Simulated scan of single mutants.
Amino acid sequence: MIDTERQDWARGWSKLKGFVEREGHARVPYEHKEGAFPLGQWVAEQRRAYGAGQMNGRRAARLEKLGMAWSAADARFQENLAAARVYYQEHWTLCAPRSAGALDKPVGQWLSNLRRPGALDGHPEWEAALEAIDEDWNPSWPAEWQRHYAVVREILAEESILAYVEPGVTVHGMDIGKWLARQRQSEVWAALADGQRERLEAVGVVPHVQALEEPAGAEEPAEPSTAPVSAFDRGVAAPGAVQGPARAL
């Protein structure tokens, strides 16, 4: 009789060994596969079996030699991290609202909990894993602001101009056009943190320029400016740029 359970376990161990030799650690993401083999799920099952006292000492020793961490917290983190990756792929940010979910995981609440002061103390590898997905997963400004900015950043990456993003244009239920127009108001722009302004400027968003008052008694209009005009402002000034019904992206 062929012991298929033993063969399956040996195959999983071999796949994990290859992963460790290549990556230098045994922290396998839950959704990771080696070829067609679901290594991340296999590793999670080994942790479950170990915690339930269903793993013999020889297997445990072989896994520990590869650097296996038995912590249930690590296993839960990897499963939630897999959900966070899926959320990021769809929304371009990890600043999810608390109600957000992915892969049947309450990823929004999970991320909110991790943003609390001290939540990642003793787990620098967890923080590094989150930053590898989204370096702005825990900004010093409101998460809601970051969600809007992430959409603007992605739009610009494809379109290179934001003139058509007028109030009423919505993405993921957010009125991006209205938000963008507000950020460009001088009083709002001045109240932003340096990091917020830097991110907006990096994608071509600048505050509205206040029109200069015409000198008293002037009889002729001032000469048009010969200063270079950005592609963004050319788009905003283009005829019909803000006309027509709002479009949802």
Rank of each mutant, 00 (worst) to 15 (best):
S230E: 04
Q183S: 09
P124R: 04
A237P: 05
V165S: 01
M174Y: 01
S112C: 10
E5V: 14
V203A: 05
V206M: 14
L114T: 07
V28C: 04
Q46F: 11
K17W: 09
P245F: 13
A72H: 03
A231N: 14
K178Q: 12
I161C: 15
L156W: 01
I161P: 01
E220V: 13
Q78L: 13
Q7N: 09
Q41A: 05
E158D: 09
P117N: 07
G177W: 05
D8H: 14
E23P: 01
M55I: 10
L249Y: 15
H25W: 11
E5Y: 11
I155K: 12
R11Q: 15
E5S: 14
A61S: 05
P124E: 07
E144I: 03
V165R: 01
H91A: 01
A181H: 08
W42S: 04
I133P: 00
F232W: 09
L114R: 11
P29H: 05
E135S: 12
R62T: 13
E166S: 11
Q78T: 06
Q46S: 12
S99G: 15
A190Y: 02
W189M: 07
A163P: 03
G244S: 05
W13E: 15
R59S: 06
S71W: 06
V165D: 00
A44C: 07
E187C: 00
W189V: 07
E64N: 07
P117R: 05
V229Y: 03
A60P: 05
D8F: 12
V188W: 06
M1F: 07
V152E: 02
D3R: 03
N80W: 05
H91P: 00
A128H: 00
A52F: 14
V28L: 06
G204F: 04
A69D: 12
A52K: 12
S225G: 12
G204D: 06
L156R: 02
R22Y: 09
E125Y: 03
Q109V: 04
A227C: 09
F37V: 10
E5A: 15
A143N: 10
G18T: 14
E198C: 11
I155C: 14
G40P: 02
G173P: 10
G40H: 03
W110E: 06
V171A: 10
H123E: 01
R85P: 01
L16T: 06
P224I: 11
Y87E: 05
I133N: 02
G177A: 09
G122I: 00
K65N: 10
H148I: 05
Q89R: 13
T170C: 13
E198A: 15
H91C: 02
R184M: 04
L130P: 00
R59E: 07
W13V: 14
L162H: 06
E127R: 14
A26C: 13
V28P: 02
N56Y: 03
G67C: 11
Q41K: 08
V151T: 09
H91F: 03
M68W: 12
Q7E: 14
D121W: 00
T226R: 04
P139F: 07
H123C: 00
E220N: 08
P215I: 04
E21I: 03
G24K: 08
A193R: 13
A73M: 10
L120R: 01
P29M: 05
T226D: 07
Q78E: 13
W137A: 04
V43Q: 08
A10C: 08
G24P: 07
A75W: 01
A150I: 08
